[in-house]
């Protein structure tokens, strides 16, 4: 175990003078479910294109399954499965024809690896004679995953598989990924949804072509470094502004049904916050210390990067 599935060192890529990837490095272990988490424009797709040998980096090296992405691209293409972000299959072919075609180009058949896709393909098999264009979003996604899996890849690259998909389908999709992982496939996935980070073994938080953190979600959360308060009051709309006015405020932002608050002083307590808000005319104030989520960490890291950028 713990063999390296991806060994990427100092990868750099620019488009027309704009840096898309900024000399970044990452190791991904075999059998790992690894997530690249970040918004549009963070460089996730560019990174996936480089790892799947579709793009040449400007500098740096990357090994996938032990093969160099530049020189040994042929070997990599035999062992990886890839589902691009806007992958929408052949709409005019039926479910089965799509799957057959993708099995065919890898010189295999559906029957040969049926055990691998049974769990996923089984759910859409009743509709195998339906054109892919007529499937619902969730079913399309399952078919796309089946197509990426049908040749039994060692490493699976999924670029934003859940973007634009509803919460139920997303949950089901992640459950499928967990079962695939149990079969020993390395799964590398990218997503703009922060809450999905918690479902990965390890994640890299990406922003503007840089990794802000690479670790297990638990460690990233543990390294948050501030007490995080969830604040509510009868008047939610002006609440952030009122909190902003507290001395030594680190960050204030809405989060779900509350407002999240960080103070640079370790000893600021919930009572201090309540007192401050009452002075400012807020009623029914509740303040709870809560555990940060990956989204809280992401925002804090973004803030750090910004101040670091401003200082240089």
């Amino acid at each position: 175990m713990n063999q390296v599935a991806v060994d990427m060192r100092e990868i750099r890529k620019s488009y027309n003078g704009t840096r898309a990837l900024n000399d970044i490095s990452v190791h991904i272990h075999q059998g790992e479910l690894f997530g690249f988490i970040g918004p549009d424009g963070a460089g996730k797709s560019t990174l996936f294109h480089i790892l799947t040998t579709l793009l040449l980096p400007d500098a740096g090296t990357a090994l996938v399954g032990g093969f160099d992405t530049v020189r040994e691209y042929g070997k990599i293409r035999r062992i990886v499965g890839y589902m691009p972000g806007r992958f929408s299959l052949y709409q005019d072919l039926t479910v089965e024809e799509n799957l057959k075609f993708f099995a065919g180009i890898f010189k295999t058949t559906i029957a040969e690896n049926y055990h691998l896709i049974k769990d996923i393909y089984g759910q859409i098999e009743p509709f195998k004679n339906r054109r892919a264009g007529q499937l619902s979003g969730g079913m399309k996604q399952k078919l796309a995953l089946s197509c990426a899996l049908v040749h039994k890849p060692e490493i699976l690259f999924l670029d934003e598989p859940t973007t634009g998909v509803d919460a139920v389908s997303r949950k089901e999709f992640w459950e499928m990924l967990q079962r695939l992982k149990a079969q020993g496939i390395t799964i590398i996935v990218s997503t703009p949804y922060m809450d999905e980070a918690a479902l990965c073994d390890r994640v890299a938080l990406m922003q503007k072509g840089d990794f802000m953190a690479i670790n297990t979600p638990e460690v990233i959360v543990a390294n948050f470094g501030y007490r995080l308060f969830a604040v509510k009051s009868a008047l939610m709309y002006p609440l952030p502004a009122a909190l902003e006015a507290m001395p030594d405020t680190k960050a204030v932002y809405r989060f779900g049904d509350a407002v999240h608050y960080l103070n640079t002083h370790e000893d600021k307590s919930a009572e201090d916050i309540i007192r401050h808000l009452q002075v400012h005319g807020h009623n029914e104030v509740t303040v709870n210390q809560v555990n940060p989520t990956i989204e809280d960490c992401f925002m804090l890291l973004m803030k750090k990067e910004e101040t670091a950028d401003a200082n240089t």
């Binding site: 294109h49 799947t52 040998t53 579709l54 042929g74 293409r77 035999r78 990886v80 890839y82 589902m83 691009p84 972000g85 806007r86 992958f87 929408s88 299959l89 052949y90 709409q91 993708f102 180009i105 890898f106 010189k107 197509c147 990426a148 040749h151």
Partner: peptide, 13 residues
């Protein structure tokens, strides 16, 4: 446009 070409390229074809 569909993105299927990417998949074809990343295959052994």
């Amino acid at each position: 446009e569909l993105g299927t070409l990417e998949v074809l390229l990343v295959s052994p074809l």
